[in-house]
């Protein structure tokens, strides 16, 4: 099978954009979660909101946070980086707090959200994702006169 010349990433410039390379993969994965979390929240809130209002509102918040992170990664630049930084931080806090609460206080979380039990329903990807995202954003911090 004829291969294209191997495009290595080793020569990736340090000032390459936030939304290329691994950033593009992150954009894809964040997009998936933006869609699944907000769709799930919409269905939950529309059909049986009264069963677990707290959990479903958190579902909605999670969806919005993923959407914001996706948008931030997509537009890139200084503004996109700031949007992504804020939303990934909220996401990290969210998954840790909701994950802990859903185990400690199961009564308040009778139905699952993306962040319940540290995202075990989604292969723990919601737990890993903010760390990867924050690391990527940190790697692309603006350097003064670099």
């Amino acid at each position: 099978m004829p291969d294209q010349p191997p495009a290595t990433t080793r020569t990736r410039p340090a000032d390459a954009a936030l939304n290329t390379g691994l950033g593009r993969l992150l954009l894809f994965v964040y997009g998936i979660f933006a869609l699944s979390a907000s769709a799930r929240a919409l269905v939950q809130i529309a059909t049986h909101f009264t069963e677990a209002p707290l959990a479903y509102l958190l579902s909605g918040v999670a969806g919005l946070v993923y959407i914001a992170a996706t948008v931030g990664l997509a537009i890139g630049g200084e503004r996109g980086r700031r949007i992504a930084l804020v939303s990934c931080s909220i996401e990290l806090l969210g998954v840790l707090i909701v994950g802990t609460l859903s185990i400690a206080d199961a009564v308040a979380f009778p139905d699952d959200t993306v962040w319940s039990r540290f995202g075990s329903g989604y292969g723990y990807v919601p737990l890993v994702l903010p760390f990867v995202g924050l690391w990527w954003i940190w790697r692309h911090r603006p350097r003064a006169a670099a």
């Binding site: 294209q4 290595t8 593009r24 869609l35």
Partner: peptide, 29 residues
């Protein structure tokens, strides 16, 4: 709708990313 759109979106993103990460996008999809 999500399922039918999945592969096309992944291919679209992978074509913009001619590095190993392009293959990783396809692999994740």
């Amino acid at each position: 709708i999500t399922t039918i759109a999945f592969a096309p979106v992944a291919i679209y993103l992978a074509r913009m990313e001619p590095t190993r990460w392009g293959n990783l996008i396809l692999g994740v999809a």
